[in-house]
């Protein structure tokens, strides 16, 4: 029975290596130079990694935070399904915030 996963692993690795060897080289060295030279000037942050994450590629980071938000809401809903979290507390909270 152990032969099946080993056989599958071998086939999978060979296919993956074959696919990797055929990948085109798409990285652009000019982009790297541009980021390193203009990070301090354009964004004002001395840390080039931070400048890329929060400024040049900020939309990617925004998507990341969206994924985290969705995960948190999902865990919150699942964890409070059976426990004492009821609609009453939510309604109380809503009425409090509305009265303010």
């Amino acid at each position: 029975m152990k032969l099946v996963p080993i056989f599958g692993l071998i086939i999978f690795t060979t296919l993956m290596l074959y696919a990797v060897s055929d990948l085109p080289i798409t990285h652009n060295p000019d982009v790297k130079q541009y980021y390193l030279q203009n990070a301090l000037e354009k964004t004002g942050s001395a840390n080039a990694v931070n400048a890329i994450v929060w400024d040049f590629r900020a939309y990617d980071t925004l998507g990341e935070e969206t994924v985290l938000f969705a995960a948190v809401i999902a865990v919150f809903l699942i964890a409070h399904k059976k426990s004492e979290f009821k609609l009453k507390t939510l309604k109380k909270h809503i009425s409090k915030t509305q009265s303010k």
Partner: peptide, 14 residues
Amino acid sequence: PMTVWSGGDTLFAN
């Protein structure tokens, strides 16, 4: 530049 009060909006984003 090069102080804590720098970094444009990456400071607030952080």
